[in-house]
C-alpha cells in the first residue's frame, strides 16, 4: 500500500453500519500504517487529531446517509481525500446489515471486502483517467452577470451552452458535451468540501445523477442535462473541490459525455435567455433556512 491514511470512522452505536465503520477502521490500522481518529475523542482533543489529519490524507468512513463522520470533518475544516459510505457499499454488495449492533458473518464479510477495496484503491490512486486537453471547449468564456445584494451570479453567453432547470449546464459540440453546475448551485451550497464523480463508462439518461457534491450545508446531486456515456471526469475536483466554487464553468467542470440523442434532450433544456430568467427568479426567491 503506497499511501497511508488518517481514518475517521463514524463509529456510531446507533446502528449496525456504524459498528461496521469501526471494524473497517480497526482492520485498516492493523494491516498498515493507517491511523484512526476517534470521533468522540476528537471533539475534546482537537489538537492531537488536527495534526494527524494534516500529516496524512484523510479517509472518512460513514455508516449511513446521516454522514456524521463527514459532517465532523466539515466542521473541523478537514480536507477529505477518500471516503466510504457503508450503507451504500452494503447495497452495492447486496448485503443486508442486521438490526442489532453485533457483526454477523455477512457484515464481517463486508468488512473484509471494504478493507481490501480501500487498500487496492490507494494503490490505484493515480490510475483514474484524465480528460485530454484539446480545442473542444472554448479557451475563454464571456459572461453576463446578475447581482443580488453582495452576491454575483455569472452565466456564460457563449453559443453551445444549454441549461436544465436543475441548474446544471452542458456545453455541446457535435456529439460531445462537457457538463458542470451553475453559479447558483455553488453559491447556494457555499464551501464545497467533497465531490464524488460519476463512473467513467457509465450510461446516463437525462436527469440521472451525474455525481454528488457536498458542503457543510448540504449534499447535492448533479442532475445530468443530457443522455450519453461518461467519457471523462474532472479529476482535479476530487482533491480540489473548491474549484467548483471558484469557477464552475471553466476549471470546475464536472464530466464529459458522448451524447446519444441530444435532439431529444434539448427538448427539456434552455439556452441562455431562458435559463437567465429562471436564475434571476431563483435568486430573488432564495432565502436562507433558519
Amino acid at each position: 500500500m503506497g499511501k497511508t491514511y488518517a481514518v475517521l470512522p463514524c463509529n456510531g452505536l446507533d446502528k449496525c453500519a456504524g459498528c461496521v465503520t469501526r471494524e473497517i477502521a480497526l482492520q485498516l490500522s492493523a494491516k498498515t500504517d493507517n491511523e484512526i481518529i476517534c470521533p468522540v475523542f476528537y471533539r475534546v482533543a482537537e489538537a492531537r487529531y488536527n495534526r494527524l489529519a494534516q500529516e496524512k490524507p484523510l479517509l472518512v468512513i460513514d455508516g449511513c446517509a446521516t454522514r456524521c463522520a463527514s459532517k465532523l470533518a466539515a466542521e473541523k475544516r478537514l480536507k477529505i481525500t477518500e471516503r466510504l459510505n457503508v450503507s451504500d457499499y452494503a447495497k452495492e454488495e447486496n448485503v443486508t446489515l442486521g438490526a442489532g449492533l453485533s457483526l454477523d458473518a455477512d457484515a464481517l464479510g463486508l468488512v473484509r471486502r471494504a478493507v481490501t477495496k480501500l487498500l487496492n484503491d490507494s494503490e490505484k490512486d493515480n490510475a483514474r483517467q484524465m480528460s485530454e486537453v484539446d480545442d473542444f471547449f472554448p479557451s475563454s468564456l464571456d459572461y453576463e452577470i446578475y447581482k443580488k445584494d453582495k452576491f454575483i451570479f455569472r452565466l456564460p453567453t457563449n453559443e453551445g451552452f444549454y441549461f436544465n432547470e436543475n441548474d446544471v449546464w452542458a456545453y455541446v459540440s457535435g456529439n460531445r458535451a462537457r457538463v458542470g453546475v451553475t453559479d447558483y448551485v455553488q453559491k447556494s451550497l457555499s464551501d464545497i468540501m467533497f465531490f464524488t464523480p460519476p463512473a467513467i463508462g457509465a450510461e446516463i439518461v437525462q436527469f440521472d445523477e451525474l455525481g454528488v457534491m457536498e458542503s457543510g450545508k448540504a449534499i447535492w446531486e448533479i442532475i445530468s442535462p443530457v443522455s450519453g456515456v461518461v467519457t471523462a471526469i474532472n479529476e482535479k475536483l476530487i482533491n480540489a473541490p473548491e474549484m467548483l466554487n471558484q469557477n464552475p464553468y471553466e476549471q470546475g467542470w464536472v464530466a464529459e459525455i458522448d451524447l446519444t440523442d441530444f435532439d431529444e434532450d434539448s427538448d427539456l433544456l434552455h439556452v441562455f435567455d431562458g435559463y437567465m430568467s429562471i436564475l434571476k427568479r431563483k435568486v430573488d426567491e432564495y432565502r436562507v433556512k433558519d
Binding site: 446502528k15 446517509a65 446521516t66 450503507s87 436543475n166 448540504a218 449534499i219 447535492w220
Partner: peptide, 15 residues
C-alpha cells in the same frame, strides 16, 4: 419539491 431533486433521500440515515 424541486423536480428531480432527491437530496433529502440522500440525507436520510434510515433510507
Amino acid at each position: 419539491c424541486v423536480v428531480f431533486c432527491r437530496a433529502c433521500a440522500n440525507t436520510c440515515g434510515l433510507d
